[in-house]
Design a binder for these strands. Structure first.
Lengths: 149, 149
DNA sequence: CCAGAAATTGAAATTCACTTTCATGTTATC
DNA sequence: GATAACATGAAAGTGAATTTCAATTTCTGG
């Protein structure tokens, strides 16, 4: 973690940038969060220990991380986009439309079939996103319970 | 087509709505378009034969069609959402990031695997979307050509 | 340690897609 | 054809994301 932040900082400096405390605070909170955060959520979190940080800096830092490949922009159709760390390997999402829970999953078989499909169309894939919307176990149980009793 | 528009009109009237020429024009252009249109694109198209139509009406009509199940909102990450007719069965998208071409595809095997994944998580799916980004055959060939000679 | 150059910051202004408002125009009904 | 309800569209309003710009911070090299 400390190591990661140092590495990113070094990369930024190599590209002609300079260190900054605000950005460091944003990055640390972001990677510590672990899940999918909106700019607004992350701003509030950072402000707990760094009240002076502006929304703009959070926007800029996340865009920067995305450009550098350390973060991904994701969109669950809520109106505001979310960012997730890109340190783990690729995964897709189950999004509960009732409670908002997001479950990550990996499925190499689906990926393989996707490769087949793209090949069939002479398409060279660079990225993909798969989101499945529905009810998580808890919400499904609740609605089933209501229906049956 | 004529038949479809009549049917939709009848449904609207059954729900307490009234007929309208603007809306009819929007719907006809929309279903005739066949592909994924933005509100802006569709507005411009409708105005060719119906100059007085406002953007708002296009927004409202597409939202209405989506609510009635005749259209789907899709998002290729361009900033503006697109609408596609929902008359054909479900399909997913290959989006070329170079030229913007969108290829539709269906893959029952992928769907089956998706069902397996959701079941494994006790998740009850209601919808999903799969977008694969990359280079279409033409753009891939072009960049391959450049690379090899 | 200091001065100057360059990047970073954040409040405010701006943009852009989308939605809401509301006075006016249309449509259906009696 | 009067009237009640719906549809329309211009303009105003939202809200997320971006840009602007003066002030601040960071780095470099005397």
């Amino acid at each position: 973690m400390e190591r990661l932040l140092l590495r990113i900082d070094r990369e930024i400096i190599a590209a002609g940038g300079k260190r900054s405390k605000s950005r460091a605070a944003v990055m640390e909170r972001f990677f510590r969060a672990g899940d999918h955060v909106t700019v607004d959520e992350l701003t509030r979190a950072v402000r707990k220990t760094f009240p002076r940080v502006g929304t703009v800096t959070v926007y800029r830092t996340l865009k920067l991380l995305a450009r550098m490949g350390y973060a991904n922009e994701v969109d669950f159709g809520e109106g505001a986009r979310r960012y997730e760390s890109n340190l783990d390997s690729h995964h897709d999402h189950l999004v509960c439309t009732a409670c908002g829970t997001v479950i990550e999953f990996k499925d190499p078989d689906i990926e393989k079939l996707q490769d087949l499909v793209t090949r069939r169309h002479g398409f060279r894939p660079t990225a993909h996103r798969l989101e499945i919307f529905g009810l998580c176990r808890k919400c499904a149980d609740r609605s089933a319970g209501r229906r049956q009793g």
